[in-house]
Design a protein around this nucleic acid. Sequence first.
DNA 1: ATTATATTTAACCATATGGTTAAGTATTGA
DNA 2: TCAATACTTAACCATATGGTTAAATATAAT
Lengths: 111, 111
Amino acid sequence: MQAKLNELFSALSDATRREILIMLLEDDMAVTDVAHPFDMSLPAISKHLNILSNAGLITQERRGRVNWCKLEPDGLRDASVWMLSFGQFDIPDIEDLERLIESHIDLTQKN
Amino acid sequence: MQAKLNELFSALSDATRREILIMLLEDDMAVTDVAHPFDMSLPAISKHLNILSNAGLITQERRGRVNWCKLEPDGLRDASVWMLSFGQFDIPDIEDLERLIESHIDLTQKN
DNA sequence: ATTATATTTAACCATATGGTTAAGTATTGA
DNA sequence: TCAATACTTAACCATATGGTTAAATATAAT
């Protein structure tokens, strides 16, 4: 369990990977399309996608020569449970959530 | 903001640091006492505590020669908001939370 | 059959991370 | 004043991480 949490939080600790997750909120994507907005080589993105897969945050399904990347909605669950179990911080208010969701949308539109 | 989230998730990606946070749920602790249950040198723990401080997850207050470590309850907030904003995963059920809180208690008793 | 597309694998590099030991700095107690 | 306590800082080391380019693989299109 600790190893799994290590992997999860570690996967989330990189901004590129978090952006990829946000992009995948919109829709499933091919690896090349995931790579497009980033100023980074395809192999680099491929590595990031592997890390996200291993952490259980996405799944990849190859159809023909295209590898489709798809958000794994329950992937964040364990990390979320771990954090909420602290129960020490104020429950994030709705406005914070809304502001952040907006910013996700801004981001996906920009790219 | 991305840099802050990097720091936060990165701080949480290490099992030693997560255990320290759980220990601090019980009470504030001196550095030496934090170090005690771990099979690791004091400087190593000191580094971990710095990382937790920089991530905003704990605060340290020196009184005399003792540096008291204290959980920063709102420290997890930003990371939590980020994760909840995905809103894609099932809300963690109460039983999961309770089971995990129990396991935290077991852990602090063991040490 | 050949070429283009989509992606991964391999080899490499610089920097970051997590540990160590040894030495340094305050503060407290005898 | 001298020694013990509670740390932190410095220097170092091995391995991990995040990037690169070049080559390999598999499928699709011509």
